[in-house]
Write a protein that binds this DNA or RNA. Structure first.
Lengths: 197, 197
DNA sequence: TTTGATTCAGAATGATCGTTCTGATATAAA
DNA sequence: TTTATATCAGAACGATCATTCTGAATCAAA
């Protein structure tokens, strides 16, 4: 038998993330993960300690690899709804280039599959959603600083709800253009709302 | 004459539905289901044939017991966005009276947890979402018959996306009032959109 | 009552799970 | 080379899963 190549923990995490993302936590057995990562059980348990800890590492990796690169622009000082639109566009394009219907959002999936029965994952999902809301609020208050803060907060919450709905839908539809127009139309309704008297 | 069962199949389904709804498919073991339904394994396998078939029966029961009573009004001939608002109100109130964060929507949960790896469940989820979209389209076209049909269809799709987002959020937030205002504000933006030039 | 069918509670079964262990093999320093 | 360490492939382990089976208990009809 040919000996397996040594794999860095980061590569290992990347490959595990891909598998968890596609299949979820429960449907990913250690046998599957050994096969799809190309690592040995020894390497996996040495690097993470167990399946659950590997999953948490993948959660963090997803933030760094997928969420942050697309969402950082929304969190920047001068960001407006244009950056929010760009965030949606990036994610939808990525989904189109990968698969539709596709694996959706790793965090949103974890929210329904794992979080309800695991406090650690629940906390991580909460943190992510708070981050989204604060980012959206940043963009909204730059877009229209004169709108009352409580209304902007409400709209930021609305955007988080809609985002979750988008990823949910991306697991069922093969129509990327529908996701795109949904996002754009929704942003349009937000825009007209804060522009109207 | 066959002996009368201690638990009717419908009661059995109701109790199984409750457990599946709260815990999902993978986290519900047959041991759990035997305990929570009060039925024997013999009764369960006799009535359904297996875990998966019992789950599908619960899926149908959820439509009849939860979806239809709330959504039928949206599908009626004269329905407008007022009925859509009432649909959201009913579901949010039920969630508040049950638990928040709560089990969300059985269909939406199945969509992320089961559907991606099970064609039968996938088809049932698709059917449900199509039903939602057609209902919303019915209400929208009654509300403003003069708006171009393609725009109404787009808005109906938007409503489905938002609905999925709402149930997703209801699994994380304990703030029912936030769900309520989100739904109402979103409906408001839809209303102003089809009223504006 | 007796009989035969039916449902009971729970043990048995075989598969699969996450995790640990074993013995072989490669690598690096001497 | 020799030796020590690290990593390999994969078997072994105990727990748990869905499903089937067993024998006692219950019921309907004779």
């Amino acid at each position: 038998m040919p000996r397996k190549a040594n794999i860095s923990t980061q590569d290992l995490t990347d490959r595990a993330l891909e598998h968890f993302w596609e299949n979820g936590f429960h449907a990913s057995s250690m046998d599957d993960l050994v096969k799809s990562t190309g690592a040995t059980r020894h390497a996996i348990y040495g690097a993470f300690g167990g399946k659950k800890q590997m999953f948490l590492a993948c959660f963090q990796r997803y933030q760094d690899l997928v969420v942050s690169p697309a969402f950082a622009q929304v969190e920047e000082d001068g960001a407006t709804l244009e950056q929010v639109a760009s965030y949606f566009e990036i994610q939808i394009t990525r989904a189109e280039e990968t698969a539709l219907p596709g694996p959706g959002c790793f965090v949103a999936n974890s929210a329904t599959e794992v979080a309800p029965h695991d406090t650690e994952v629940h906390a991580k999902v909460d943190t992510h959603n708070t981050r989204l809301k604060l980012g959206f609020l940043n963009a909204l208050s730059n877009e229209k600083p004169d709108v009352p803060p409580e209304e902007l907060e409400m709209l930021a919450g609305l955007l988080v709800v809609f985002t979750n709905g988008l990823w949910s839908t991306s697991r069922l539809t093969k129509d990327g253009e529908f996701l795109r127009t949904s996002a754009n139309q929704f942003l349009d309704t937000i825009r007209t709302r804060i522009t109207a008297p």
